[in-house]
Design a protein around this nucleic acid. Structure first.
Lengths: 209, 209
DNA sequence: ATATAATGCGAGCATTAGCTCGCTTTTTCC
DNA sequence: GGAAAAAGCGAGCTAATGCTCGCATTATAT
C-alpha cells in the first residue's frame, strides 16, 4: 500500500515575510507542476523558482509531499468554495433549474485551472492526501444528497444516497473528461451542448416518469 | 542440407525461456504495485521478486516506465477484451437490454482486479503511456457511438458522438467510483441497485420522451 | 563436438533527490 | 541600541534508484 510522509507544517509562519515565503513556495510548486510536470518538481527547483532557499522551504514544509498536498488543498478549496456557494444559492430552486446550475458550475469549477487539474489528476501519485480528497468528495456527496432530499417531492422514489452517488459521479465525470480531452471541446457551443445534455440526463433520471 | 519438416517449430524452444522471464517480470511488477505501491516498485526489487537479474530485466524492458506500461497494457487488454466481446454480442439487442448489459459489464470489468485498478488509477503518474490509454478510450467511444448510431431509430435525435461521450463518461464513472470506494458497496444487492439505476438513467436519457 | 548465438547474471557506477545543519540576516520588542 | 526570536541561507551529506557492462551459462546449429 502507500506510505505516508508527514504533511503538517513545521512552523507556523507568523510574520508577514514568512507568509509571503510560504505563498511563493506553493505558487512555485503549482507553476512547476503545470509547466514541467510532477517529475521535474524537485524541492531544490521549487525553492529556486520561489526565490527562496531549500532550507527555508523545509522550515515550512516537512516534505515534498507536503508541498504538493498544499497545492492540491488550495485547488480543492477554490473548487469547494464554488460548489458550496452554488449549492446554497440553489437550495430553493426546483429540480430542473438546480441541476442545470449544478452542471454548469461543475464544468466551470473544472475550468478554474484546467492545466493544474490535469496534472493533479494524471501525474500526482495519491499517497497520504487520499484522506483529504475523500473528505472533499464526501462533502460534495453529502451536500447534494441533502439538496435532493429536500426536493424529494419532485422526484421518484429513490434512495437519496444512491441518487447522489450516481448524479455526482455522472456530472463530475462529464466535466472531468471534458477538461482532460483538451480538444477544442472548449468552444462555447460545445460546452452549452454538454450542459444541456447532462442536465437532461440527470433531471430525467430523478424526475418521476 | 536436409530440412526438417515445417511443422517442427525451431525457434520457439529458446524463446520460451525468455518469454517466461518477461512474463515473470510483468507479473512481479503487478504484484509489487498491488502489495506495496508504486513507490516501492524499484527495478532491483522487481527483478528480485521475479527471480531474475536486473541485467535480464533491462534486456527486455528499456526502463522502469516500460515495465509499468506493460502492466497497464496487460490490464487494459483484459478489459478491452471484455468490452469488445460485449459490444459485439449486444449489437443486435434493443437499447434497454443493451445498455443494461453494458453497464453490468463495465462494472464487472472494473472488478477484474480492483486492487490493481486502484493502484493504476491513483498511484501511477501517467507519463508517456497517455497515448495508449487514450487510444483505448477512443476505441470504447467509437464502439459505443457505432452501436448507438445503429439504434438511432429507438432514440431521440442526438448527436451520436456527444451521446456516446456522455453515456460512456457516466457509466465509466459509476463503475470506477464504485471500485474506488472500496467500502462494502460490493454487496451484490448494492451492485444490482447500481446497475438498475445507471441503466435507468442512461436509457431514459437516450430514449425519446 | 564445437562454434555461435541467445539468455542470464549481479556487483557497482553515476546520478539525483530529499533533506540537515551551522550560520547569517532581519524583525520584534524593551 | 541591543538582545532575543524569527526567518533565511546554501554547501553538502545520505541514501536510494535507475541502469551498464563484462562475464557466465544455456540453447541451437552445423
Amino acid at each position: 500500500m502507500a506510505r505516508k510522509p508527514p504533511t503538517n507544517p513545521r512552523k507556523n509562519a507568523s510574520q508577514a515575510r514568512s507568509r509571503a515565503t510560504v505563498d511563493a513556495l506553493i505558487e512555485a510548486t503549482a507553476r512547476i507542476l503545470v509547466r514541467d510536470g510532477f517529475e521535474k518538481a524537485s524541492t531544490n527547483r521549487i525553492a529556486e523558482i520561489a526565490g527562496v532557499s531549500v532550507g527555508s522551504l523545509y522550515q515550512y514544509f516537512p516534505s515534498k509531499e507536503a508541498l504538493v498536498a498544499a497545492v492540491i488543498d488550495r485547488h480543492n478549496r477554490e473548487i469547494m468554495q464554488v460548489v458550496r456557494t452554488t449549492l446554497a444559492e440553489v437550495a430553493g430552486m426546483p429540480l430542473d433549474k438546480a441541476v442545470r446550475r449544478l452542471v454548469t458550475v461543475a464544468i466551470e469549477a473544472h475550468r478554474i485551472d484546467p492545466k493544474l487539474h490535469r496534472v493533479l489528476a494524471e501525474q500526482i501519485p495519491r499517497t497520504g492526501q487520499l484522506a483529504e480528497v475523500e473528505a472533499f468528495n464526501r462533502e460534495v456527496h453529502a451536500l447534494v444528497r441533502f439538496y435532493l432530499d429536500s426536493r424529494r417531492k419532485e422526484m421518484r422514489k429513490i434512495d437519496p444516497g444512491l441518487a447522489a452517488f450516481i448524479c455526482v459521479s455522472a456530472i463530475e465525470a462529464v466535466a472531468h473528461n471534458m477538461v482532460l480531452d483538451e480538444a477544442e471541446m472548449l468552444s462555447e457551443r460545445m460546452v452549452k451542448a454538454l450542459v444541456d445534455e447532462t442536465t437532461l440526463m440527470v433531471v430525467g433520471y430523478l424526475q418521476p416518469k
